[in-house]
Write a protein that binds this DNA or RNA. Sequence first.
DNA 1: AAGCCGGGGTC
DNA 2: GACCCAGGCTT
Length: 359
Amino acid sequence: MPTTPESHLLKHRAELQSGLLRWYRRNRRPLPWRLDPSVYRTVVSEFMLQQTQVKTVLPYFERWQAKFPDFESLASACEDDVLKQWEGLGYYSRARNLHRLAKAIVAKPVLPDAAKDWRELPGVGPYTAAAITSIAFGKLEACVDGNVVRILARLTADATHHGDGAAAAKYFTPLASLLLSPSSPGDHNQAMMELGATVCHRRDPLCRCCPLAQWCAATKSGSTEDFPKLQPKEIEHRSVTRAWVVKDGALLLHRSSPRARRLANLHELPTATHLEIDEQSLDARDLLARRKRGITRYLITESIYRISLSEQLRLGDSLVWISFGDLQSIALSGPHRRWITEILAMQAADKRNKILPSK
DNA sequence: AAGCCGGGGTC
DNA sequence: GACCCAGGCTT
């Protein structure tokens, strides 16, 4: 019977676990949800960390704790305040799901401690259920995120092609479960993710510093960057035309419906479609800004035009006037917040130049 | 199973 | 510009 990379790992499982845990205790970053852990802080951090890097999350986590320190305060908050705290983090359904989760937790007689119970709650999938229950309750549940996939694919030099990260995570879950340290599953899971984030980089991994290098098939053959094998996404270009409409010191914004697929209950600059404006009729002289940005597999070009208020403009229920003084208190997506700030700064500069013409 | 979420950082 | 990030939800 041939020796597979996987069976080699399992043979040395105990050494691998102790080496990993020893490395983790020496090298883990002092993150706020580790220094002062609780079930609530673990849940909040895991929601924020879905598809978002630690560095990005840190300031949001601290602000969130100051505003919503526990499940009760979050459950009793209004959704507008919750979305406002999430402004700029992206993937806003996470904030709405976390809010709904807090309400569900407060309504329960006891805090659930089993992964299958957490899995029933909104926004909690296989990864998050394993993370919460292993870290906060010591349950034997293996976390399989992008970091763990990368490490396991390299340890085994497994050349299987995966359509996306979710398929790869599913594929590596059995191995992750077999390797999980039974004595400290929470630290083991965090150690794997920490190793992926700080050592087993996608490119130029620091194999000389890796506590698992001696068992890594990809390191042995100098092919770490060949794993995992994930299918690249096809980038699709799209363009959106938006309107800048002002009346009596207020800006016209669109507010997405609570059931919208994206940006539910958030404000944004209205699109030409929202206003039933024919894009062909726009004048290039009214173009205030053109910005590109990406989200998942889309590259979106957004063009913002100054539109004068006229009888022809149709304003549906989803359109609201927000006075410039109130712009700070509503929830916008990160890009929309930036564009509005930039355009206002531009206009203020134009105004100064008219009053004090440059020489 | 595949798309979508329309964010942000990194190299 | 391409790829990734402590993924989950919808269809």
